[in-house]
């Protein structure tokens, strides 16, 4: 089975700082791949490159086997790649439904649509359907997101991305702000998304969560993928060892 998205030899510098030094990465449809590494290992940078936020300095990306260059995040999204950003990227003054449709507003049919009039009711209902099916506890689809709890906000951001993801979802620390229960709900959601055939790339610092949900775990250290584990091959000690370099066994 070919990878849905793969990266070979990705390099990226910020000025003089070499953040990524020939990273390889791959993810297949329907699997949960965790990307772990110490702070500053380059995880977020890699995700930005893989989701079209910025181009790599060097290296090759392939989508469904074909070489690809993302022009913009929008382009990546048109190709079915969604991202839950570490900072969520929600508009705090708008409601969950409105946030779910930012940039993808549904227009009314006919003349009104031609004039650019949006169909608020349909968007609200569709968003509600999607949110409910994902088991979120956001009740009021119009209350400003700013008024929601941290966990609710997080689930709004996740639902929004999952709602639109046709191939792949990146989640950069989606459970960072969550309590134990909501974290479990998010992990369940991740599993169900993957079971639907969508690939999920999870970034997390929580090793037990990573071990529980991942099909594969790829460890990044100093801008390189140092090791990869399949399900059941790793434990917390090994992961920490690989991340910090204490356990420098390359494969």
């Amino acid at each position: 089975m070919t990878a849905l998205l793969e990266a070979h030899g990705i390099y990226k510098n910020y000025g003089h700082v070499e953040v990524l030094r020939g990273v390889d990465f791959d993810v297949r449809a329907g699997e949960v791949v965790s990307l772990i590494g110490d702070n500053g290992a380059g995880k977020s940078t890699l995700v930005k490159i893989l989701s079209g936020v910025m181009p790599p300095d060097r290296g090759e990306l392939r989508l469904r086997g074909e070489p690809v260059q993302f022009e913009s995040p929008l382009h990546a999204r048109e190709l079915g790649i969604e991202t839950v950003y570490q900072d969520l990227a929600l508009a705090p003054d708008l409601g969950p439904a409105e946030n779910a449709y930012v940039g993808r507003e549904i227009l009314k049919p006919g003349l009104l649509g031609w004039l650019g009039v949006i169909d608020k009711k349909t968007m609200r209902e569709k968003a509600r359907e999607a949110f409910v099916s994902m088991g979120t506890d956001v009740k009021d689809m119009d209350a400003p997101v700013a008024a929601l709890s941290g966990g609710q906000r997080q689930s709004v951001a996740i639902c929004r991305s999952v709602m639109w993801a046709k191939g792949l979802v990146f989640m950069d620390e989606p459970t960072a702000a969550l309590g134990v229960r909501q974290t479990r709900k998010v992990l369940d959601m991740i599993r169900r998304v993957a079971d639907q055939g969508v690939a999920v790339v999870l970034i997390s610092h929580n090793m037990p969560d990573v071990l529980q949900v991942s099909d594969r775990i790829q460890v990044l250290r100093l801008g390189r993928r140092v090791v990869e584990y399949g399900r059941g091959e790793a434990d917390v000690e090994r992961l920490v060892g690989a991340m910090t370099g204490a356990l420098d066994t390359v494969r």
Partner: peptide, 16 residues
């Protein structure tokens, strides 16, 4: 257009 992930999947218990 927008769709739910899996309308048939069991929804996890909502402890929250």
């Amino acid at each position: 257009d927008a769709r739910g992930v899996d309308v048939n999947a069991p929804v996890p218990p909502d402890d929250e």
